[in-house]
Amino acid sequence: MANILSINNLRVRFRTDGAVRAFIDRNQDPYIDAVLDVSLSIERGKTLGLVGESGSGKTTIGRSIIRLVDPAGGTIMFEDEDIGRMSSNRLATLRKDISMMFQDPVASLSPRKTVGSLILEPFKIHGIDQINQNQKARELIEMVGLNEAFLGAYPHQLSGGQARRVGVARALALNPKLVIADEPTAGLDVSVQGEILNLMRRLQVDRGLSYLIITHNLPVIRHLSNHLAIIYLGRVIEIGSTKDIFTNPAHPYTLGLLSAVPQPDPNKRREKLKLEGELPSLSRRPTGCEFHTRCPFAVEKCQQESPIRQEIEPRRFVSCHFPFPLSQVKVQTA
């Protein structure tokens, strides 16, 4: 199978109390699990969408792939190597193959540098001599649909959409194989969102890129991603092809997320499930199925037993005691 990246049982922990504090409080385990038992994979040239509410750990998963955060357990296989066990020298070269786009388009550009020097930064970092720097900068900036006048601009002179394009140019400068895009459309007008997504898709086709797109915005991801992984409290609760998940969500949380998307056509009906309440605290995870506190279908079993991940269709996994049978739920009925 041609997976460019496969993650198995990834776990990421953050320390909540310092050593002294934890000792005084007799806290044996001063950590929270931001990401727990996450397994997913991305096929070469395809796009995986990582969907979840704020605070669900999706950004942390993205950051641990590029080792901005160190995983506490599990494996992250990129091609045939475990990223979690890479030496720092190997990591430096890995960062040519995987690049990341950050949430805030303007804040992710170093404020005192010009656009030109920002998009050439990857070459300088990796000591790749560009014989004709200006030529390369022009190529990159034109690739993302800006003209070369922008090379002299500073980040604060750019609009969100322009800054995002610069971010795309920088991310693709070294011809990476995998791009992790954290909320690529956050803070952009709807029309600009469309432009950025079209740009990303065009570049994917041209260069055979694989994407991991992290978002809470389902409509954004629908047309770009081949597969979706739904994250809740740092766990993957449902994973499958985008089409299947949009038409036949199996987990009640997925249905809840889909229900929150406004329907443009008032004549179309879909079963609605309103999600109540807040995301529970990571430091006090609910017992049993962690979604039971908000699940309208929860029964006693859900409070006591954690559901096991089951394959309900080929390559379609769900963690729920009572997944919606695929035939029963007709989400979109005429």
Partner: peptide, 8 residues
Amino acid sequence: LAERSLGA
């Protein structure tokens, strides 16, 4: 973070 992710 972006600079670090580029390998700086």
